[in-house]
Design a protein around this nucleic acid. Structure first.
Lengths: 249, 249
DNA sequence: CGTCAGATTGATATTCATCAAGATCGGTGG
DNA sequence: CCACCGATCTTGATGAATATCAATCTGACG
């Protein structure tokens, strides 16, 4: 395990890198972030970073690995409503929501940092612009969720899956984790089914159909997009909703 | 049409009522809101309040009627990713997103107020707590979208429709528009299909199945829930995600 | 080698979209 | 007042898409 000094540096850098994809972060703001108090924790596959119905007093940032927001229905089925990648401030809204309406679970091995809410409130008082950037990060999550609603509601399975892969590739690439449209995504087809709102068998067959297009390969846990433009065209993927434009907010 | 003084009073009251469902609004904060500059506009069914790919410099608040966020796919199908009710600050995220990734359309006749972004930025500088409340309103929108993802992805049509009705009833009731679980919802089944991600025929049949449960009647444009507790139980509806709890944020 | 999780496959039943045709309703103009 | 019209709702029939069930296969690992 990394020592704490490493974890802290990683967390602060990840967060700043995330924010800098969308706007400038001033030295003053960097300094505020660098002085946040944090605790760190590692999670195994399936473990919960944030528990449904709890009242967190800290918010959680992913340092490595993939997490998902999980909604369990009373009939026992599960829907994952969001996938978060390293650098995402996954649980920032707990600051405002107070009471969790869902869990955040580790889809893979995960390292995470927790920041006390009072420190975030302090930022919102002391640094309005930085506060808007944090606000922005929750708003981008909302934009992604809207894209997902459209995918589940109206796209064909093949396009839905391809759209997801495009999205992950672009998001990971923004934080340096998907060079040449290739990235590691160690999830099972069963997990993927809960992300896509399909059955396991359907996922398996859709994956095969996607491979047959020749645009993507997915071997072991490595996803590689061979022709991003063609895949984006096929799946009607337009990255505008990810808001990866650096401009004043 | 109302004169402007009326519209302004309605807008400010609607917004304060919305925020007060979740936290206290101080006299200072009220005053800031009351002095926002606004322009007002009326829309007919199907007209766009906010246009995809535009760069709004003002954000839009619904005063009366229902609006929806509309995503059009290249195959011509449509998905509505959110329904907004009077009092919702529909387009608050445009403040941060800059470039719209979707449209906001009038599902019925709609009156709306537009507030310049610079005034909202000023609030974020001058009133951190009020700013957090506005942030909260976008975060609640996100929570609703997550619930929708779960509904589209995993619930049966009957439960999905019932869940939507429960949600609308609770949200409308919070702003005084659904006394005794009865409210006006003048949308066509075709619009509903785009909300639910189903075909028109499916919506029609699901509506009939819902009527047969005896828990809901939907005549002309009036929806009445006869047994809210039973409907909520049937559809696995838990209002926690709407965050209608008044507490410090 | 045996075990286990995960991936794959085939068969079957169900659900759902689509197509096409009426029925109903509200409003309009003669 | 009535005939007509368009929008919306309703219904039945059909085929395609998808979930489900039940094996079987594969690869990693002790």
């Amino acid at each position: 395990m990394n020592d704490l000094r490493d974890d802290r540096a990683i967390a602060v850098e990840a967060l700043i890198r995330y924010l800098e994809c969308r706007d400038q972060v001033s030295a003053y703001e960097r300094n505020l972030l660098a002085n946040l108090s944090m605790r760190f924790k590692a999670f195994g596959k399936g473990e919960e970073l944030v528990v449904e119905h709890s009242r967190p007093n800290e918010s959680c940032l992913v340092l490595s690995g993939f997490t998902g927001r999980e909604v369990m229905l009373k009939d026992g089925t599960r829907q994952i409503t969001a996938v978060h990648i390293p650098g995402d401030f996954v649980d920032l809204h707990a600051l405002l929501l107070k009471l969790m309406d869902h869990s955040v679970v580790a889809l893979t091995e995960v390292h995470a940092a927790y920041v006390p809410h009072q420190e975030l409130v302090r930022i919102s008082e002391a640094a309005p612009h930085l506060s808007r950037l944090l606000w922005l990060s929750t708003v981008v999550d909302g934009a992604i969720q809207r894209a997902w609603i459209a995918c589940i509601g109206r796209r064909k399975p093949l396009h839905h899956l391809g759209h997801l892969i495009c999205e992950l590739s672009v998001r990971l690439n923004a934080v340096g984790l998907a060079p040449r449209h290739s990235f590691d995504f160690p999830v099972t087809q069963a997990q993927l089914a809960d992300v896509l709102g399909m059955s396991l068998v359907q996922v398996n067959r859709t994956l095969q159909a996607l491979r047959r297009t020749g645009l993507v390969s997915w071997k072991a846990s490595t996803v590689t997009i061979h022709d991003f433009a063609a895949l984006a065209e096929l799946c009607d993927f337009d990255p505008i909703y990810l808001n990866l434009i650096n401009e004043p907010r």
